[in-house]
Design a binder for these strands. Sequence first.
DNA 1: TTCGATGTTCTACGAACATCGAACAAGAGG
DNA 2: CCTCTTGTTCGATGTTCGTAGAACATCGAA
Lengths: 120, 120
Amino acid sequence: MVRVKDPQHPELAEMTLTDVMAALSDPIRIGLVRLLSDGHERGWGELRTPVSKSTLSHHLRVLRAAGLTRTRQEGTRCYVVLRREDLHARFPGLLDAVLTAADSEDVGNQVGLATGRPPT
Amino acid sequence: MVRVKDPQHPELAEMTLTDVMAALSDPIRIGLVRLLSDGHERGWGELRTPVSKSTLSHHLRVLRAAGLTRTRQEGTRCYVVLRREDLHARFPGLLDAVLTAADSEDVGNQVGLATGRPPT
DNA sequence: TTCGATGTTCTACGAACATCGAACAAGAGG
DNA sequence: CCTCTTGTTCGATGTTCGTAGAACATCGAA
């Protein structure tokens, strides 16, 4: 049994439009992409979503499989970053258009960062 | 029983990004959009797809419900046209980016026009 | 009015998906 | 070693989706 430990990121040429579109048809995943749109790498723990960790893991896997994000593992922690350049090279303008649209109607606003302190 | 005969096209403000993305995550529907991307109005009968007419009707309904297309009925015939201006006003650049991407990998090439045509 | 062409709707079904909790694996730190 | 944290994977479940066929509605034409 091969432990699929490889994050299996698709190459540029392996990305398909339908996969990307499907990945971006979920509010949570759009929220995650918006969160990552500043280009900063984020740790799993920073991500605040209204879903359980297993579901979050699933969504992050979908994003990764579609080629939207890149995942890096460091110890027990995982970090994720948006593949802006790759996306732009493969589907010019698509990501920007989606981000603009997502901002305009605030899609995935339920997804946030853990930057805020624990409420006193 | 109210016959919902109205094609129910969403207003500009009623379009949602997730609906549009979901509508465009299917190869057949992308093919239809590509076919309509020249701005010409097309009749149902001109559309050649590898699916049954009920399924085609379903796909056209999804596109219409997402606000991507506008349907007009004339007699027993129906005509469909892409809502380019509306799309551009609501989600600037999105449609163009998708069309460019779709062209680059020839998504939905199974959808075509009734080239040959008039049977006698 | 009867027939044929054109779409829509109903119903059904398998596949895919979103979701969760529980069990599991791998490091980090005592 | 043991324990805690972090993330993955594995069922299980309910929902949505894509698909087709049959029945129905509508209009034009004979």
